[in-house]
């Protein structure tokens, strides 16, 4: 029994690998499906320069910084807005319809408009840095990319925050008021902690979507690095092995970030699962 519970989750991956090996041998065309060991070689040497575009790691790092910047701005706006919309019915009425107009638009559909607005301007343009190492770093962070990542992460975080605040048990608020809490204490010490499990879930979903928006953001003109750019560029060079290695590393980083969130959820918010509300 113990062996089975250990083996069952491995079944699908092993099947996939076997299929891959068999298909690759049969097709014998590495543009369509490269042999697995070729991809593994790239993954095993993550610091080696690939198609003169930098290493896998350096591209992943560039992407990670972009995602985190876009994501952080989404968090910084969506959480306060969500708390206020969840608490004040009037603010909810004022913004909800308006925000819902934009919700169904896929982040990718913003690309043409965003390009028209921001073009290839970057943090370097904004800060006025025009030479040197810092220029290289800052110029990698294009506003258009940040915007698309922002749009992707914004809605899940906002929705979860509103929902979290709205479902806070009214007795908790009454208790705090009777104990002498002022309005700002109600927000800081009651509403936000009580809604935190929901907010964290929204942040987790938002980060997943932000990471997914990354590839499309990195396909924008003016992009010179990043894992998404590397994949598209490798495709034009028919280096399918790099395409697959890039996809696998995107998946791994995404899963890793999700795992961190799950950890936090499990450790900090164990009270939520057992509490009746």
């Amino acid at each position: 029994m113990k062996f089975f519970s250990f083996a069952v989750p491995l079944l699908a991956p092993v099947l996939l690998v076997l299929c891959w090996i068999w298909m690759a041998a049969r097709i014998a065309n590495q543009v369509i499906l490269p042999p697995m060991d070729q991809v593994l070689y790239i993954l095993a040497h993550p610091f080696e320069d690939l198609i003169s575009m930098g290493s896998l790691t350096s591209n992943l790092l560039v992407s990670l910084v972009r995602v985190l910047l876009g994501y952080a701005s989404a968090v910084a706006i969506a959480i306060p807005l969500g708390v206020i919309m969840g608490y004040y019915g009037m603010v909810f009425k004022a913004f909800n319809g308006f925000l819902n107009l934009f919700r169904p638009i896929p982040p990718l559909a913003w690309v043409p408009l965003v390009m028209a607005w921001f073009g290839i301007s970057s943090l370097a343009t904004m800060t006025g840095v025009e030479t040197g190492q810092w220029y290289v770093y800052l110029n990698n962070i294009k506003f258009s990319m940040l915007f698309i990542i922002f749009v992707g992460a914004f809605y899940p975080i906002l929705t979860a925050t509103i929902h979290g605040v709205r479902s806070v048990n009214a007795t908790l608020l009454d208790s705090a008021r009777v104990l002498g809490a002022g309005q700002s204490q109600i927000f800081r010490k009651i509403l936000i902690p009580a809604a935190m499990p929901a907010i964290i879930t929204g942040m987790r979903i938002g980060l997943g979507i932000a990471w997914m928006c990354l590839v499309s953001a990195e396909m924008l003109p003016g992009s010179l690095s990043g894992i998404g750019y590397m994949i598209t560029h490798a495709f034009t060079l028919a280096s399918t092995d790099i395409v697959i290695a890039g996809m696998i590393s995107i998946g791994c980083v995404g899963a890793l970030m999700d795992m961190v969130f799950r950890r936090v959820e499990k450790q900090k918010f164990s009270w939520q699962r057992q509490t009746n509300s």
Binding site: L172, S175, L179, G182, I190, P193
Partner: peptide, 28 residues
């Protein structure tokens, strides 16, 4: 703070320990 109110149930702050719950009023 002159008038306290005890509710029927679900009034404790679930993310705070028992000690921090009791200390909530003075904390405010």
């Amino acid at each position: 703070a002159d008038i306290g109110l005890v509710f029927q149930e679900y009034s404790l702050f679930p993310w705070l320990s028992v000690l921090d719950n009791v200390a909530a009023g003075p904390e405010f």
